[in-house]
Amino acid sequence: MAYYDEKISFFRRQVVQKKHNESKLKELYTQRETLNIKADALRKDKLDEQVDVDRLEGHSLTAFFYNVIGKREEKLDIEREEAYAASVKYDVVSRELSAVNEDIKFCEAELRELHECEQQYAQAMMDKLKAIKSIGTQAAEKILRAEERISYLEKQVKEIREALEAGQAALETSNSILSSLDSAEDWGALDLMGGGLLSDMAKHSHLDEAQQQVEYLQVQLRRFKTELTDVTIHTDMQISIDGFLCFADYFFDGLLADWAVLNKINQSQTQVQNIQSQIEHVISHLTTLLSATDKSLENEKVVLNDLIVKATITD
């Protein structure tokens, strides 16, 4: 009987992986469609903002008007900031879209390799059923039902663990962002006290680090949400998870020159702390869910073992 159990266990793991990939792929297709629409809109914003900059830098009537009233440089600074912010947002979405496409390719490749696993699993179960019936036991159906329950619970455990790994990775990155912002805040305070060029450069260096990490965190948050596709969560938490996809948008609002002001850095810290709190809340829920699912899985394995032992003794 061990021979059948090994085959069933192998194909069952493949079936679990196939179903998980199918759910992920469905979510990824939806994300790709949304990101394509978003990228198109941001590309237009980026081009429009650059046109405004070019108009003021050139010899247009708009440039002449602001030059006459003595506010050309002030207006040009604002337009440059808006153009750069639009460019940053477009770059973030482009990286997200690239990451989603890579995930799609990976899932599709795995699914091609697993396309026959369900038939193989069904055949292995049929072979085991025949073997059990051949020795005259009446426990065949109970054993098969226990196998199916174990299969479902193993799938849940795998999905919860993968979601936890994604959440922990996002949490670590959010900690790194806070560290960079804290350093920028310290150098910014020194800059206000006359720290000079060195403190100003150090402050912006840490802000650059934070910007790069936020772009990476946005990709991680999207993957975290994807891993949660098959995990059952309550409605309030679902709303929180949906917010993961917009984090970079509101983080980069009011970017650039205003960031040099300490209260803007403080606002950015608050935004990161808020998303961090949401991540921790989901991780806590997943940890509790994993513990309960693990316990149920162990109980089902005990039930299955007892059924097999009884069937063997009976026969």
Rank of each mutant, 00 (worst) to 15 (best):
K18A: 03
R72Q: 05
E22K: 06
K44S: 14
I69R: 09
R72P: 07
L25V: 02
L42D: 05
E81A: 12
K89L: 02
A41K: 15
K26G: 15
L61E: 15
A85F: 03
V51F: 10
V88Q: 09
L25Q: 01
K26V: 09
L47G: 11
Q14A: 01
E27D: 04
K89R: 06
Y90V: 00
Y84H: 14
D54T: 01
L47F: 11
L42Q: 15
E49G: 13
D54S: 05
Y29H: 03
E73F: 12
K26E: 13
H20V: 06
E73V: 00
R95H: 15
A39F: 14
V15M: 08
K75I: 01
K46G: 14
Q50S: 05
R72G: 04
T30D: 15
V92W: 01
Y66K: 04
A63T: 00
N67S: 13
T34Q: 06
V93M: 07
F65V: 08
E6C: 04
L28M: 06
L42W: 05
A39M: 14
H59F: 14
A86E: 10
K71W: 11
Y84K: 14
I8V: 01
E81Y: 05
L25F: 07
Y66S: 05
E27Y: 13
Q17W: 04
D48Q: 09
K18T: 01
R32L: 02
V68G: 06
V53S: 10
L28Q: 07
G58L: 00
V88M: 03
G58E: 09
Q31G: 02
D5H: 12
R13M: 11
V16W: 04
E22T: 04
D5P: 06
L76N: 03
V16N: 04
E22Q: 05
K38Y: 14
I69L: 03
R32V: 00
Y29N: 08
S23M: 12
R95G: 13
